[in-house]
């Protein structure tokens, strides 16, 4: 049963892009594609041939494979209530975060491999933004570790439900941060708008202009997986491990659904940041997580007010 979180995340990841697209279409009064359309796209890409730029090298070809693998392995850490992930050890979130960084690293150099000005632009921004968002994640995990006295994804989430009511307040802020970090990691609104015309998209989508066929299929699937990664973590905040299993599964899926619908809403009603504002916006996340950390310090009574 240890892989329950992983399996459920995989399942929901397949539907994520579709649900977001449908939500956005409905909200803007369009008919929109079916929920399974992204899956059909992926299946078609899997059957298709590829075109490779003569400028590219092996790096370009292996980058999507490593990227996809890094996200799947990161998903293996996904706990589910009382069940651990397939992989779970102390301070596993450091491994998790650095693994995602491996994926980003190879995608950045993969984009640079094409020698395209557009892709260079995207790659460069991806590098900058993922650097800026890194501290927010670590401070947040540090606060949770401090609060629960546990340091793996699994035990963090199990123990967060045993503390006082205050820990739910922290969880609320943490959820907000997770949603925003997910948006940065996926280069979605407000950082970037993936649904604009390709050349106008500023970050992630512009990095993959030259990918095609199998590689593109992996990249599409990876987008869904990356959402599932954060959706799953958020869901783990919500339900305690004492609930019966089927309720947990239902809640897990519901939270995931809500998460993507929220993303859809956000994307439908919110405009993209001005690009030069992005760094500041991302740094705000770090300061919010710093606030979380300080509040946790207060909660665990480590302040000197006498």
């Amino acid at each position: 049963m240890n892989g329950l979180g992983f399996l459920l995340s995989i399942v929901s990841s397949l539907l994520f892009p579709g649900i977001i697209a449908v939500t956005k279409a409905k909200l803007s009064g369009r008919k929109g594609p079916g929920i399974f359309q992204p899956l059909f796209d992926a299946a078609r890409l899997f059957r298709k041939g590829s075109i490779y730029s003569v400028t590219t090298s092996i790096i370009f070809q292996i980058a999507p494979v490593i990227y996809f693998a890094s996200i799947v392995v990161a998903l293996l850490f996904m706990p589910f209530g009382q069940y651990k992930g397939f992989l779970s050890f102390e301070v596993d979130f450091v491994f998790f975060s650095y693994l995602l960084a491996v994926g980003k690293f190879v995608m950045i150099i993969g984009a640079m491999d094409t020698g395209s000005g557009f892709e260079g632009m995207g790659a460069n921004r991806e590098a900058l933004y993922s650097m800026l968002v890194e501290p927010a994640f670590f401070i947040l995990m540090g606060s949770l570790a401090l609060l629960t006295n546990h340091t793996s994804f699994y035990s963090l989430f199990v123990h967060i439900h045993f503390d006082s009511v205050l820990s739910y307040l922290i969880a609320l802020l943490a959820i907000y941060l997770f949603v925003q970090i997910a948006m940065v990691e996926n280069s979605r609104i407000p950082i970037d708008d993936p649904k604009t015309h390709l050349e106008l998209t500023m970050i992630h989508e512009v990095m993959v202009l030259d990918n095609s066929g199998f590689d593109m299929c992996l990249i599409h699937l990876a987008t869904g997986l990356k959402f599932a990664l954060y959706g799953g973590l958020i869901a783990n905040f919500i339900f305690p491990d004492t609930w019966p299993l089927y309720t947990q599964i239902a809640v897990f899926l519901m939270v995931n659904l809500l998460f993507v619908i929220a993303v859809g809403f956000l994307e439908a009603f919110r405009a993209r940041n001005k690009l030069e504002k992005n760094p500041k916006w991302i740094l705000t996340l770090s300061s919010i997580s710093m606030v979380v950390f300080l509040s946790v310090l207060v909660i665990v009574h480590k302040y000197f007010l006498e």
């Binding site: 041939g49 590829s50 075109i51 490779y52 640079m112 094409t114 020698g115 557009f118 030259d210 066929g213």
Partner: peptide, 23 residues
């Protein structure tokens, strides 16, 4: 499947030379 090779995608502009406009 069929594997092809071509120039880097330059947004429809085929005269682009990576040596000049790459980062």
């Amino acid at each position: 499947v069929q594997i092809e090779h071509g120039p880097t995608w330059g947004c429809g502009y085929s005269g682009a030379d990576p040596a000049v406009h790459q980062y």
